[in-house]
C-alpha cells in the first residue's frame, strides 16, 4: 500500500508540473498581454512597461517560470484584479462554499442513490425495479439548466416556499441550499442508482453469493456483508469523479442560484481575464482532479484487494 500511495504522489506532482508548464506557456509567455490583463485596457504603454519591469517580466522565460512556480508553491498567488483582494483569500472563500455544497450534495446523493440502486438490483424485474428505473431515467434526462428553472417555478414563484437565490448573504442558510443541492442530486441520482443496480445484479449472480445463500446465511446478511462491498466498487469510482464535476461543472447551477462557489469563480476569472485568479483556479482544479483520481485508485485497492496498479 505505501508504494502505491508513493507512486500516486509522484504521479500527482508530475501531472501538476506538466499542467504548470502549459499554464505558464498559455498565460505568461506574452508579457505585454499580461500587463494589459493586470492593469486594464486603459493603462498606458508607459504604465505597462513599468509594471512589467517591477514584476520581473524582462527576465528570461525559464527564470520567470521557476519564480512563478516558487511563489505558487509557497501560496503567494498574487492579487486578483477584479476582486482587489489576494487570490488565495478569494480562492479559499469560494472553495469553502463549494465544499459546503459538495458536502450536502454527497450527503443527499449517496444514501438515496445507493439505496435505490441496491433495492432495484436485488428486486430485478419487479414493479419496484421498474418504478425506480423509470424515476432514474426521468431525473437523469433533465439537465440542471432545466431542473433549476422547474424547481424555481414550483418552489419560488408558485408555492413561495423557498428563497430564489443562494448567495448566503446573511451567512449559512440551509434553506438556500435546498434548491441547488436538489437540482444537482436529481441530475446525478439516476446515474449512480443505475450504476449501483447494474453492479448489484452482477454481484448477486456470482457463485459465492449463491453459495452463501445455499449455506443458509440470512438474506440481509448476504446482501450487507457479501454483496454490497463488491457492488460498491463501480459506484465509488463514479462518486469520486463527481468531486471534479462539482468543482467546475456546476457553473449553471451556481449561476442560476447566484451561489458564490468555485465554478462561478472560474467563469468570472475567465470572462474578466483576471490572470492570477485564473491561473490559481486552473491549478486548483488540476490538483483536485489528480488528487481525487489518486484517492479513488487507492481506495479501489482497499475495496478490492485483487486490484493492483502496476
Amino acid at each position: 500500500m505505501p508504494r502505491i500511495v508513493f507512486r500516486r504522489l509522484v504521479y500527482l506532482i508530475a501531472t501538476m508540473l506538466a499542467a504548470s508548464l502549459i499554464l505558464f506557456g498559455l498565460f505568461e509567455l506574452s508579457p505585454e498581454s499580461v500587463a494589459v490583463d493586470a492593469l486594464g485596457q486603459f493603462s498606458t504603454q508607459e504604465q505597462r512597461m513599468l509594471w512589467l519591469e517591477q514584476n520581473g517580466y524582462f527576465e528570461p522565460a525559464y527564470v520567470r517560470y521557476f519564480a512563478w512556480l516558487g511563489k505558487f508553491v509557497t501560496g503567494d498567488l498574487g492579487m486578483s484584479r477584479v476582486f482587489n483582494a489576494p487570490v488565495a483569500k478569494v480562492l479559499v472563500d469560494r472553495l469553502s462554499a463549494t465544499g459546503i455544497l459538495a458536502l450536502f450534495f454527497f450527503a443527499t446523493l449517496i444514501p438515496i442513490s445507493l439505496t435505490l440502486g441496491v433495492i432495484a438490483g436485488i428486486q430485478r424485474g419487479t414493479l419496484v425495479d421498474r418504478a425506480i428505473t423509470l424515476f432514474c431515467v426521468i431525473t437523469t434526462s433533465i439537465p440542471p439548466f432545466a431542473s433549476t428553472v422547474l424547481l424555481s417555478t414550483i418552489f419560488v414563484f408558485s408555492l413561495h416556499l423557498l428563497p430564489g437565490t443562494s448567495g448566503m448573504i446573511d451567512g449559512f442558510s440551509f434553506r438556500e441550499l435546498i434548491m441547488p443541492v436538489t437540482a444537482l442530486v436529481l441530475y446525478d441520482l439516476g446515474y449512480v442508482a443505475r450504476m449501483t443496480r447494474a453492479s448489484m445484479i452482477d454481484v448477486m449472480a456470482r457463485p459465492y453469493i449463491r453459495t452463501a445463500v445455499l449455506k443458509g446465511v440470512p438474506y440481509p446478511v448476504v446482501i450487507l456483508r457479501h454483496a454490497l462491498r463488491n457492488a460498491l466498487i463501480a459506484p465509488f469510482t463514479v462518486i469520486m469523479l463527481h468531486v471534479n464535476w462539482l468543482i467546475g461543472g456546476v457553473i449553471v447551477v451556481e449561476l442560476f442560484f447566484a451561489y458564490k462557489g468555485f465554478g462561478s469563480l472560474i467563469l468570472e476569472a475567465t470572462l474578466s481575464r483576471d490572470l492570477f485568479l485564473l491561473e490559481a483556479c486552473t491549478m486548483t482544479a488540476v490538483v483536485i482532479a489528480v488528487a481525487t483520481q489518486s484517492l479513488a485508485d487507492i481506495a479501489y485497492t482497499f475495496l478490492n484487494p485483487r486490484i493492483r496498479f502496476k
Binding site: L162, G164, T165, G167
Partner: peptide
Amino acid sequence: GPQLAAFASRQ
C-alpha cells in the same frame, strides 16, 4: 434570472 427570483422571494 437570479435577480427576478431574489426579488420574487423577497431576498
